[in-house]
Design a protein around this nucleic acid. Structure first.
Lengths: 182, 182
DNA sequence: GATTGACATGTCGTTGCTGACATGTCGCGG
DNA sequence: CCGCGACATGTCAGCAACGACATGTCAATC
């Protein structure tokens, strides 16, 4: 039931429509934290409105309904964020692949890891200027919403790229040995 | 439908029972790649056996059924691992919390980030000796199954701990400014 | 010889989630 | 003025997943 907390978190920054929220999930949030499609978002917003966690703040031209966080909603968000850090839901297909890469033959594993490293380095190259620009724009002003999240993603990619490089080394070392043994 | 690939991957190392597999998900695999309970695993194994991806290899004392990968199962696993790296399912409550930490008031955010840093450093301290021991045991032998995955987890925790420390710095910097502005 | 805890497998009702389908508006370029 | 793409909201069938419940074995401790 974390979808609702994701929605509450997004609404804590600014009121938004279901459409806005569904696009937020297409970005970094959906890429490595939590994904949801609009088919899940709209019903959940209605349910949350029923429960008083959010409220329709205004209605726009194209049937647009802008939702805003209520006091109860903010309280629920804070409660969830500060909750005992129990073991929550985890499901990540990409990470799963990395866990299982050793099931591949060395040649395939090498190609896969090279792909991972390349992809992650490209993402780092994409994100770094974005973050730098954010910092310049705001200068020494308040942290823009999502700045910490962006940094999280950047460091994540750096770590995975480094891991892939390390794994390639280890793989090569054990392959070299096998060749000598044979 | 990645649960089945997680199961295929685990079985690619060695045959195992549903019980064994469900315990595998309680470890690092379930902690940051994919989680599943036994209630999902047993039916999935039956279905996969129906489809010929796995087969009951032997039956043990306590009604234990040991499953082994078939040729088809291995082929399916390889296919999935080498597939175009489309955007797969992502769902991680812990990461979501980190994305939304900026919804908290600075004091609460600080306490939260301190907790994250502390927890990650403890996990690094727990994992590092385990990995070092693995490397010593095997010496220069073949990579033990899961060694790459373990390294992944270790580097992950290091990266998150560093991120939390960085975030605390940034938070403090922007708070200090606010205080001066007031 | 009884109880406890790890081993071991399952069902079932409810809820979460996805993909396909459905509907309509508004602004812009051709 | 027509069509297209972005905006905008929704339903529904079917599959995935979780928590509660159910059942039984075997080894060790008390």
């Amino acid at each position: 039931m974390s979808l609702r907390h994701a929605l509450l978190g997004l609404l804590s920054d600014a009121p938004a429509s279901g459409y806005d929220l569904s696009r937020a999930f297409e970005g970094d949030l959906g890429r490595y934290a939590w994904h949801a499609g609009h088919t899940r978002i709209y019903p959940e917003l209605v349910r949350m409105a029923d429960e008083g966690l959010v409220a329709v703040e205004s209605t726009g031209p194209r049937g647009r309904k802008s939702y805003a966080l209520t006091g109860d909603g903010l309280a629920e968000l804070r409660r969830w964020l500060l909750d005992p850090p129990e073991q929550g839901a985890v499901r990540n297909e990409t990470v799963l692949r990395m866990f299982l890469v050793q099931a591949l033959e060395p040649g395939d594993a090498r190609r896969y890891l090279e792909g991972v490293a390349e992809y992650c380095e490209a993402e780092v190259a994409r994100l770094r200027p974005v973050m730098a620009e954010l910092d310049e724009q705001e200068g020494t002003d308040a942290l823009p919403f999502g700045r910490l999240a962006g940094e999280y993603g950047l460091r994540q990619y750096e770590a995975v790229a480094a891991w892939a490089a390390w794994s390639l080394d280890r793989l090569e070392a054990s392959q070299g040995r096998d060749a000598r043994d044979a």
